[in-house]
């Protein structure tokens, strides 16, 4: 009684929120907004622009989920998290889903009790060096000083790589990408290592991107994906199948431009099931029939999201690579919608 009163007062004052009950889906619907954990700022994946709008690849996933569940892609509260706070924020119910370049690893899945609901970006750790060093392979980096961003799996992969190849190095742990960049450009480290996508994004922002090369070695597997709390499978299903819907939409040729037309006139039964004109998939998730249609309408399919945020026409300029559809030789493979 005492606690409910204090928390009632706090809730009225807008400083606390009842959340994180057993059924996240109901909580999100009742609240009317989705709380989504993102990075504190990584261009292309999640960063606020000059107007304070969050933009990026991970952000689009959050917005797609909000569109599917709440019917409004803007009904998202973005909670910036650091490497340190992200897991607590999720475990304590401060956020409903964490979409923050988080690598799917065994211990995070099993020991920390989270559910990775899929992979939205297949990444791997790479190295960037100035061209002037004349290094062509990461194995030539004996004795080099390496800038790393802390709080990621990067540190562990780096230690493993140099240990396996029996060469020495000096790590320089840096908190933020911007500072790591500054150190690297000033020559305080010879090498900058992080996920290859991040390296490409960083290099794109340099004054002279041509003076720096990415080494061919990719030293780790980094399947990045959104995650939710263990033990709430209904909510996990919603997020998982929203992501799958985006991927499947690209495979099936459904885009934000033609989704309306497809929904009314398609004769492909899978598209019809996806867009809710046939079958009861939405109802099975506890959503309405148009859930996937809204997600695709507002955010576009996976390919469109990729192209607008990190694709080759953006300053970040990433090729699809592993993140192409399986039909194009990539790893993206959505389970069928039936």
């Amino acid at each position: 009684m005492n606690k409910s009163m204090i928390f009632g007062a706090l809730t009225v004052a807008g400083l606390a929120a009842g959340a994180a009950g057993a059924a996240t889906l109901d909580d999100v619907k009742a609240r009317g907004t989705l709380n989504c954990g993102v990075t504190t700022g990584l261009i292309g994946f999640a960063a606020p622009d000059a107007n304070g709008e969050w933009k990026g690849f991970d952000v689009a996933v959050c917005r797609a989920v909000a569109a599917a569940v709440l019917g409004d892609a803007t009904a998202v509260e973005f909670v910036p998290t650091t490497g340190k706070t992200r897991f607590t924020a999720l475990a304590s119910g401060e956020i409903d889903v964490l979409a923050r370049n988080t690598t799917w690893t065994f211990s995070r899945d099993v020991d920390l009790k989270f559910d990775f609901i899929g992979v939205n970006y297949y990444d791997g750790q790479g190295f960037m060096v100035p061209k002037a060093l004349g290094v062509s392979s990461a194995k030539d980096l004996d004795g080099a000083t390496v800038c790393i961003q802390t709080g990621t799996t990067t540190e562990l992969n780096l230690a493993d790589f140099f240990r396996v190849n029996n060469i020495s190095y000096e790590p320089v742990p840096i908190e933020t990408n911007a500072e790591a960049q500054q150190q690297y450009l000033a020559g305080a480290c010879d090498v900058y290592t992080t996920d290859a996508s991040g390296l490409a994004a960083t290099r794109a922002a340099f004054e002279n991107p041509g003076d720096h090369v990415l080494l061919p070695e990719i030293v780790s597997k980094e399947p990045l994906g959104p995650l939710v709390r263990h033990g709430d499978s209904e909510w996990g299903d919603v997020v998982r199948w929203t992501l799958n819907a985006l991927i499947a939409a690209e495979e099936l040729g459904v885009s934000s431009a033609n989704v309306g037309e497809m929904a009314s006139s398609t004769n492909n039964p899978e598209i019809a099931r996806l867009l809710g004109t046939e079958g009861e998939l939405g109802a099975m998730l506890g959503l309405d029939a148009d859930w996937a249609k809204r997600a695709i309408e507002t955010q576009g399919n996976y390919g469109e999201i990729f192209a607008t945020n990190i694709g080759e026409d953006t300053p970040i300029g990433l090729a699809r690579g592993l993140n192409a559809q399986w039909t194009d030789g990539g790893l993206l493979y959505s389970p069928p919608f039936r």
Partner: peptide, 25 residues
């Protein structure tokens, strides 16, 4: 340090991370 965007957080976070102002310290 704990991802609140006070003035130092704004500088080290969104502003320095933006493509326009990357490198203004």
């Amino acid at each position: 340090v704990i991802s609140l965007f006070d003035i130092v957080g704004m500088i080290r976070g969104p502003i320095l991370a933006s493509t326009d102002w990357n490198g203004v310290y």
